[in-house]
């Protein structure tokens, strides 16, 4: 059973703030979706997992210096910019 506490824990893991009403709504959605996922319990254990499907291993490119994007192009998008740098939120409380 998914509890309200579980939903709040999941929201915290995902870093998404949710309201009281959203907790109720997501609780019901999660329960029905996870119940459906339980069909996976029937799958035999003795199978190799496939992380990807192409027979590719260790794709390398040459370690060459290439031109990167101009600073002014990149700084067009962030809202908080100071002295040519992107300004982020406080990491330490």
């Amino acid at each position: 059973m998914i509890t309200e506490k579980d939903v709040l824990h999941i929201a915290d893991l995902a870093k998404i703030e949710i309201s009281e009403e959203e907790v109720q709504k997501f609780k019901e959605d999660f329960q029905s979706i996870l119940d459906y996922f339980n069909i996976l319990d029937e799958v035999e254990e003795n199978v190799e997992p496939s992380f990807q499907v192409l027979p590719l291993t260790n794709v390398f490119r040459k370690d060459e210096v290439k031109e990167s994007l101009p600073r002014e192009d990149v700084l067009r998008n962030p809202k908080h910019v100071e002295d040519g740098y992107i300004k982020g939120p406080r990491v330490v409380e």
Binding site: I86, G88, P89
Partner: peptide
């Protein structure tokens, strides 16, 4: 932070994010 929807005020990392 780097692009897209942003808040007017930068807050603590967890709250802002």
């Amino acid at each position: 932070v780097r692009y897209g929807h942003a808040l007017d005020q930068l807050d603590s990392w967890t709250r802002y994010f």
